[in-house]
Design a protein around this nucleic acid. Sequence first.
DNA 1: TTGAAAGCGCTAACAC
DNA 2: GTGTTAGCGCTTTCAA
Lengths: 341, 341
Amino acid sequence: MHHRKLATIEDVAAIAGVSIATVSRAINEPRKVADETRRRVTDAIARTGYTTNAMARSLRMRRANMILILAPDVGDPNFSNILVGLEIAASTRGYGVLIGNTQNDPEREADYLKFISSNQADGLILFTGHLPFGLADADPSVRLPPMVAVNEPVLNHDVPFVGVDNFEGARIAAEHLVSQGHQRIAFIGRSPARRINALREEGYRAALAQAGLSVDERLILPGDGTTESGRQATEHMFVRDVLPSAFLCVNDATALGVFMALNNRGYVLPRQFSVMGFDDIAFASFVTPALTTMKQPRRKIGEEAMNMLLTLLEGEPPRQREVFLRSELIVRNSVSRFTEK
Amino acid sequence: MHHRKLATIEDVAAIAGVSIATVSRAINEPRKVADETRRRVTDAIARTGYTTNAMARSLRMRRANMILILAPDVGDPNFSNILVGLEIAASTRGYGVLIGNTQNDPEREADYLKFISSNQADGLILFTGHLPFGLADADPSVRLPPMVAVNEPVLNHDVPFVGVDNFEGARIAAEHLVSQGHQRIAFIGRSPARRINALREEGYRAALAQAGLSVDERLILPGDGTTESGRQATEHMFVRDVLPSAFLCVNDATALGVFMALNNRGYVLPRQFSVMGFDDIAFASFVTPALTTMKQPRRKIGEEAMNMLLTLLEGEPPRQREVFLRSELIVRNSVSRFTEK
DNA sequence: TTGAAAGCGCTAACAC
DNA sequence: GTGTTAGCGCTTTCAA
């Protein structure tokens, strides 16, 4: 099968006693070939172990049946299941998936774009939240390649998007805290420049407003979504001595930082403080206390995004340019009922 | 740049006033072209935004500069950084990386093999621990495609392998426990059929032997590496009332199960029991107490494996067929000095 | 329903 | 140093 010269369409044609055009048809449009002929071709294919040479076909057809995925870090646990969903949907529809780990390096982004301009990939899935370098600054008359953003919407460009409804998710999370009697709820992870953080903050504000609670701006702390930022924010609150009864964190990583700071100061969770995260990353259920959080339907996001892209590629306009999937409240043990001390 | 018919080598040649052969040479073997000519070609390329059509090139060259990665689950946190390493090494050497999520489904494995037989990929990285279905049973006279196994060696086949030295790592781990005064050390995760588990168990035994400690077989419990198996094994020990002072777990996931069982029973770690893991997965540093473990050089594994494969592909025999990288002892807080009660 | 033949864009042998 | 040309393996008119 390998290194013994591969069978070509000519070999098959010779064995079947037909022309290569007929072999091609038998493979791609079987109904246009007489039953008997088709049988002979099928046999010949089996006998030779023939597989269509994808390069020749792609060259001729001008498409590669390949999708390029651009992500700043394929190893990011937040990405991995989206990746799985993308891969499954792609392979189901006969497409392959190429990965491009950009590390947010403009040069690597531009490099990977060559897969598109060299016809090696037909479309693009973007995890990066921005157009890849080389496209961002391109003259606007130039048509962008077919692409769909995932995880983070693309700033300032009308790129179709599939992701979680961050506003609604955060609203539900804050509502959960309110339903447990909390009135002083901190939001950890303010960062207006980050779309996700901004939306989650808005959801938080909406829930408080809806509950008739006023927002204490001193309980809203900046953070970039890292564990360290959660730790620092918490420390900061103690230094200023403005404390909540519950922490709503912009994501699970941040919540972990809050956990660490609180543990460090000797508090027992969730007795003395409640903490909520967002994302439901792998270890959320393994920390102590297990983290109450909002679960992202990651695999589903990947599948939807890929299906949207392939639909786009096949020439149909997508039914909607933005799809927001619902996140799910996962109640574990890091939130307790608030009781006045 | 897109959908405005792509520039071809002929367009460049016309603009530069040379033949297409010269353009090709200017790109691939610049030194064979006169300075002045090369300059004109470079200019023309810039003016047209030309990119070599990868399909045409691959068809002609009979190689795709593409590597297929077969993994049962791309989302596995144990894989992700290896994946990053693979990707980095590949792109550094001008190769693309195709992912195949097989879910251990023979059908999907066979499907993905078509990327090889259809010339879309030149080589294979195997995470699966076995030859893909369709190769495993192939007649042995058939040459296998170039491949390198990673993470888990391939059973019964002489496939080059890059991974961590499991025996040595476990030996160092057990030695660490011994150095902290532990004498009754359990091994959680016995599973002779799994190469990794078996090697780690051997390392454990070697360390005890070296320390002059006898092995109490009742302290060696079966497990498949899941969190649940760790929990169960621990429960089992309590039921039989044969207890160690320290648990050496076959991996971090198992250690987590041990944590849960111990927490459940109200023990305080590491005061009452010490626990060690293996792998250093993402959350190892975030559990309480932070897990002492052996860190796998995952990214390095990926890089080495890819480099080995590309070397193979370029016709050179690999310097060694098996590369074992050292794992690193990461001391955190889950192990304490043993003091007689 | 089938076949002949053009041509996708490129590299490499060969000739100059 | 450079140009001409064959041909990689396929799909797709066009004609029979």
